[in-house]
């Protein structure tokens, strides 16, 4: 609404506009009141709803007869939906087994990467099983069980000039995606390599195909999957740098369920459950070049 001096209405205009202005004011007050009421309602009900669903113990889950597990629906081969609409993947194998051993039915809840912590803190799921890497920041918000998978960096290089040792990269161009652990790791530990940073995965893989660098460094799970699908390239170093663990997570303070999950890992370790899950879900993607032991963790103990 313009109130510049040049457009001030004359006296008659003021008089004519007065009743209209009052109506507008009333309307504005009504709208503001409704908005306020809405916010108050949301705060009262929305908040209390979140607080009401605190952590559920194993006994409570078994009594309810259903466990809610948050998984990925779009991150093959860990958790995705196949053409028939069924959930498949490495994490799903684990989730199904957890439900079976709890003796309850399984409700899979699709989650997004950035919302995984929120799903637990707001009590929308009992467990998150979505390729969840253990970090200090996350451990302040949720409780992690023992790991069932490990991830580190991998090096993809052309078959014509394979990089089998990181020392071979000395003075060479190495491609990374900005903001990944590969970038921080190389800068901190291998300042002798020349790092080329790209914004997108598609850009970095194109640059690799065009021979713009000696190698591409990224998460080994990604490296393996990409190299498998691109002739002329291989994951020549399958694990490099710091090793991160991937684990199930529960709501902060749910010690009962956490203990149950850790015990479950010991039981599953005895039957090499995760090697079987690997063969079923990950091996078709990664091929047989990589040994399952480089990724799989049995019994919750990283070796």
């Amino acid at each position: 609404m313009s109130t510049t001096p040049g457009t001030t209405p004359d006296a008659t205009g003021e008089v004519a506009a007065a009743p209209k202005r009052r109506t507008t004011l009333v309307a504005a007050i009504v709208v503001a009141a409704l908005a306020l009421a809405g916010v108050v309602t949301w705060l009262a009900f929305g908040r209390s709803q979140g607080a009401a669903t605190g952590p559920r113990t194993v006994a409570q889950i078994q009594e309810a007869g259903k466990v809610r597990i948050g998984v990925f629906s779009d991150k093959a081969p860990f958790g995705s939906v196949d053409s028939s609409g069924a959930y498949v993947g490495y994490d799903i194998e684990y989730a199904e087994r957890v439900a079976k051993d709890l003796g309850v039915t399984l409700e899979l809840v699709p989650v997004e990467a950035a919302a995984r912590v929120e799903y637990l803190t707001s009590g929308k799921v009992d467990i998150i099983l979505a390729n969840f890497t253990v970090t200090e920041e996350r451990a302040e918000k949720v409780d992690f069980a023992k790991p069932y998978l490990k991830v580190s960096l991998g090096v993809v290089s052309p078959d014509g000039a394979p990089i089998t040792d990181v020392a071979q990269l000395d003075g060479k161009d190495v491609l990374v995606v900005r903001g990944t652990t590969a970038e921080t790791y190389l800068e901190a530990h291998h300042p002798e390599v020349k790092i080329q940073k790209y914004e997108q995965y598609t850009e970095v893989t194109n640059a690799l195909l065009d021979g713009r660098g000696a190698a591409w460094v990224t998460d080994n799970t990604e490296a393996l999957a990409w190299a498998k699908n691109n002739d002329g390239f291989s994951t020549t170093i399958a694990s490099l740098g710091p090793q991160d663990s991937i684990a199930a997570a529960v709501q902060k303070g749910n010690a009962d369920l956490l203990r149950w999950l850790d015990d479950e890992l010991v039981t599953l370790g005895k039957e090499n459950f995760f090697h079987a899950a690997y063969t079923k879900t990950l091996e078709p993607v990664y091929g047989t070049d990589v040994s399952a032991d480089e990724l799989v963790v049995e019994g919750g103990v990283v070796r």
């Binding site: 491609l175 900005r178 903001g179 970038e183 921080t184 800068e187 080329q196 940073k197 790209y198 914004e199 850009e203 640059a207 713009r212």
Partner: peptide
């Protein structure tokens, strides 16, 4: 910086990210 050249913008993004 989209073609991985370490110009001013590239360095700024580096510092913000790290």
């Amino acid at each position: 910086s989209v073609v991985a050249l370490p110009d001013l913008m590239y360095v700024a993004k580096d510092i913000i990210g790290s």
